[in-house]
């Protein structure tokens, strides 16, 4: 398709087009970076490179009692790490069973997983809200406005979303490894923990990171479940942040947006290839 040399004009329009695209892609990001260092806290009259950059917004971010940013980051991290760790455990157990055992209902089970994962959990948000409302009347520690309740909701998606992805990886590990371990007297569970788990570490990390990014960024379920500022996760809190006098708190918001995005951006850039292949290969590819 690409024969001969590019003419000067060919070079020109290609680079022109790409530069416009890069401007479109980076504009908002550059602009937020600039706003976070700009001494003026308003959106009005901002230049891209601030005349006298300041860290004031970053300091204010951690001193506003009405918008406890550090609590939100902590809550988000806590919920995301716990939920993702448990998700990896639940998924690995399930994927191992589907990969290694032959039992009645296995095909039906795998098929059901595909069916269920079509329906995003948030479609049932009303029912989830009412469920936690009722649960909280009996067990307040698991009800509305608790992180434990939110984590339980996130765990609901564990099996549906990632089992196929992980099972595909498990299938590539030869069975002879476990079999020889079991010859030596290991139980299937011991073989799973000691032999298989170390071998499938790459996929465990991918699922953990995908789940971490998902839980960290999840907005709507967190929004309906968490009800007080001190319990908010970052997405819910950030939203509150800008609905109060948005335009006059712009610098602080920009600083918060950058700090909040940083962990995810780093994870993404470091693990880009693995994550993208995990995301795009789809859960159902073998």
């Amino acid at each position: 398709m690409y024969k001969g040399r590019l003419t000067a004009f060919g070079q020109l329009w290609r680079h022109g087009l790409l530069l416009v695209a890069v401007l479109f892609a980076l504009g908002p990001i550059l602009w937020v970076i600039s706003a976070s260092f700009n001494p003026s806290n308003t959106i009005v009259g901002q230049s891209l490179i601030p005349a006298n950059p300041t860290l004031a917004h970053y300091r204010q971010l951690f001193q506003d009692p009405r918008h406890p940013f550090h609590l939100w980051i902590w809550n988000s991290t806590k919920v995301a790490v716990i939920a993702s760790t448990l998700t990896v455990a639940l998924t690995a157990l399930g994927a191992y069973a589907f990969s290694r055992f032959r039992f009645r209902g296995r095909r039906g089970g795998l098929f059901t997983l595909i069916l269920i994962q079509m329906f995003p959990q948030m479609l049932a948000m009303v029912a989830i809200y009412l469920l936690l409302l009722q649960l909280g009347e009996v067990f307040p520690a698991l009800g509305l406005n608790t992180h434990a309740g939110l984590i339980m909701v996130y765990l609901g998606g564990a099996l549906g979303v990632n089992t196929w992805l992980m099972k595909g990886y498990f299938d590539t590990i030869p069975r002879s490894l476990e079999e020889s371990a079991m010859m030596d007297g290991a139980t299937p569970f011991q073989a799973f923990v000691r032999i298989i788990m170390p071998l499938v570490r790459p996929i465990l990390i991918v699922v953990f990171m995908l789940s971490l990014i998902g839980c960290y960024s999840e907005y709507v379920l967190a929004r309906i479940i968490l009800q007080t500022t001190d319990q908010y996760t970052l997405p819910v809190g950030m939203q509150l942040f800008i609905s109060d006098q948005y335009s006059s708190r712009w610098g602080i918001f920009a600083a918060g947006a950058l700090l909040g995005a940083l962990p995810i951006v780093i994870i993404f850039l470091v693990m880009q290839r693995q994550l993208v292949s995990g995301l795009t290969s789809g859960a159902v590819k073998e």
Partner: peptide, 17 residues
């Protein structure tokens, strides 16, 4: 192996649907 995942899936996905 399946029960832990199934429990949460039924409680937080299937039952809510």
């Amino acid at each position: 192996y399946l029960l832990p995942g199934l429990f949460f899936m039924f409680m937080m996905v299937v039952y809510p649907i």
